[in-house]
Structures are given as C-alpha cells and as structure tokens.
C-alpha cells in the first residue's frame, strides 16, 4: 500500500516493511537507490533527523523473492508559520479583495481557509482563479460603521496557523495607479510640459466616487521631486520646467474622501520644447553650392549656427 507520509524536518522516522517481521530479510530502496544497512534496525528503516533532501519514494522488498512489500512517499516539511494577509479595495464601491502568502515555505501542500465577518453576517469570499492566493468580496452595503473581520487559517499535515484583520470599509480603499500617462512638450513654450492620464480601469464609478491625483516630476539631473495635488480632471500643465532638460513624471490616485494613495504610476519621460536652430547661409556655402551643383554629390546640410537670441 502506497501512501504519503509527512514528517517534520529534524524528526526521527521509522518505517516498517509492511507486515514483514522485524527479523525478516529485506531490502530498502529510496528514489531507486539502495539504502545501506546502517539505516536498518532489523527490517525497520530508521531515518534520524530527516531533512528536505530525504523526501522521496521509499520501497521495501522481501529479501529473496524481491516481492514489493511496502512503499511510501516521504514528504519532509514544516508546519505553516503565521500567514501574511492583506485586504484592499481597488474597485470601490464594488468590493474588496484579500490576498495572502506564507512568510516561508513549508515544502508540503497547504490549504487555506478564509472567513469574512461583517457584524453578525458571514460574507462569501469568492476565490480568484488567478492569482491563486486571493479572493474577493462584493459589498452588499455601503457606508457601514461596522468593521469587517477577515480570518485566514492555513493548514498542512504538520500543523495549522492563522491570522486575522479587522478594518473599516473606508480604511482599505486604495485605487490602482493611474493609467496611460502621457507627457508632451508644448510648442513654443520651453518651460512647459503637458501631462495627461486616465483613471485606473479597475475603478468602476469615477463619477460617483471621484479620484484626486498627485503628480510628481523632476529633471533627470536632480533628485528632488516637485509635487502638485489635483482634485479635478486628468491632466495638468507643468509650467516651471527647466528648459531643455529631460523630465521624469509619475502620477498617483486616491479617492476624494477616503482611503490611501495608490502606488505611483509607470514613469514617463519628456523634454520641454526647444527652439529649432535657425539656418544662416554664408558666402562660402553659396559658392560651394554653385560649383558642385553639377556633381551628383549633395552638399552636407549647412552647419548650424546658434542664434544667441533664442530662449
């Protein structure tokens, strides 16, 4: 009979060769290789202070006939530590999701069970197909003064652990970052940059639940960010950019009244408009142009002469 045997790292493990007597002649194999007699006590296999490398398939054969008398899969692991649980509403007011992970691996399968209590009512946390360790809860009511309590229990063959979170509806509201951030120079304005973005697509009802935004920008040559908070609209014109310097720009979002700021958006780069070089033609270039005009070679573009007056 083959089954899975779970043992803790560091445990001493004894395996019997099925129904064989203690003094029967047997051969033990692990993952296809013989186990030497030093690990045997009669027909029993003794594994001291097991470690992860000793996980595998173990077979016991009767000495002379090589009949398979016993096989097992040994899985060496550890009980679960207290899981890390996080709940967040990035699609308010639709609902919120909770995601979790273990602070360290257990090397054996774990099962997770989550319960969500709102006042006296238990709510269903619908498991997401992906990512795996995540489920979401649909709000039935809004503007509740009663806190939500989420309890996550993790169990494996070697033990069990749990953690819980208690929070108010508004405390976990955190939108996703703004999307489609675009920054463009403004023609004829060497100190301006036009930035636009969109509400995160996961935010379902910006009309009823408007977002406000935080814009930060700095020239690449400096470390210090400049910030501006915007409570309306999804665009802004930077008017104090250093002429000719490349800028890095990011945007964050937050519900107008509750919750916390999103992470920063993807960074975009832009450089303010700079004046095109003026074309000054001198006598030398004119004579050169006429004498070579009959040849197929085209003269190189006239050397740019900076117009001191610009910007």
């Amino acid at each position: 009979d083959s089954h899975i045997q779970y043992e803790r790292v560091g445990a001493d493990v004894t395996m019997k060769c099925g129904s064989m007597d203690w003094d029967a002649a047997v051969t033990w194999m692990a993952n296809g290789t013989d186990i030497d007699d030093s690990h045997l006590n009669g027909s029993y296999l003794i594994l001291k202070n097991v470690d992860l490398t000793q996980s595998g398939q173990y077979f016991c054969y009767e000495g002379s006939s090589w009949h398979l008398k016993y096989q097992t899969i040994l899985r060496v692991g550890v009980p679960p530590k207290e899981p890390v649980l996080m709940c967040r509403s990035n699609n308010y007011p639709k609902g919120f999701y909770c995601s979790w992970h273990l602070p360290s691996p257990t090397y054996i399968p774990n099962t997770f069970n989550i319960s969500v209590i709102h006042g006296t009512r238990e709510m269903v946390c619908e498991k997401d197909v992906f990512p795996k360790n995540r489920c979401h809860i649909r709000y039935l009511q809004l503007f509740s003064t009663v806190k939500y309590k989420v309890t996550l229990t993790v169990t494996n063959a070697l033990g069990k652990n749990s953690t819980s979170l208690t929070f108010d509806e508004f405390a976990i509201v955190k939108p996703d970052p703004p999307e489609s951030v675009v920054a463009k120079p403004v023609p004829n304005n060497p100190r301006r940059l036009e930035v636009s973005w969109q509400n995160p697509s996961s935010w379902p009802d910006p009309e009823s639940f408007p977002l406000k935004f935080f814009l930060r920008y700095r020239p690449l040559i400096l470390d210090q960010w400049q910030h501006v908070e915007l409570s309306d609209g999804t665009s802004h014109t930077i008017t104090d950019a250093y002429a000719g310097k490349e800028y890095i720009i990011q945007v964050a979002a937050k519900d107008n009244d509750i919750g916390t700021w999103s992470d920063w958006s993807v960074a975009v780069h832009a450089t303010p408009w700079t004046e095109e070089p003026k074309h000054l033609t001198t006598e030398v270039q004119i004579t050169e142009t006429t004498s070579t005009s009959t040849s197929s070679f085209m003269p190189p573009p006239t050397t740019k002469i900076c117009d001191k007056g610009a910007g």
Partner: peptide, 22 residues
Amino acid sequence: NPPRLARAERVPSATVDLDLWR
C-alpha cells in the same frame, strides 16, 4: 470593534444598500 447595542441604533445609520443608494 464593539458590538452595536440597541441604544446605538437610534443614531441614524449611513449604511445603505449600494443599488438602493445609487
């Protein structure tokens, strides 16, 4: 996170069904 006693029910509750509110 105290239970809400009957006394506290007298205070008008802002809680509302989402679709109703909309």
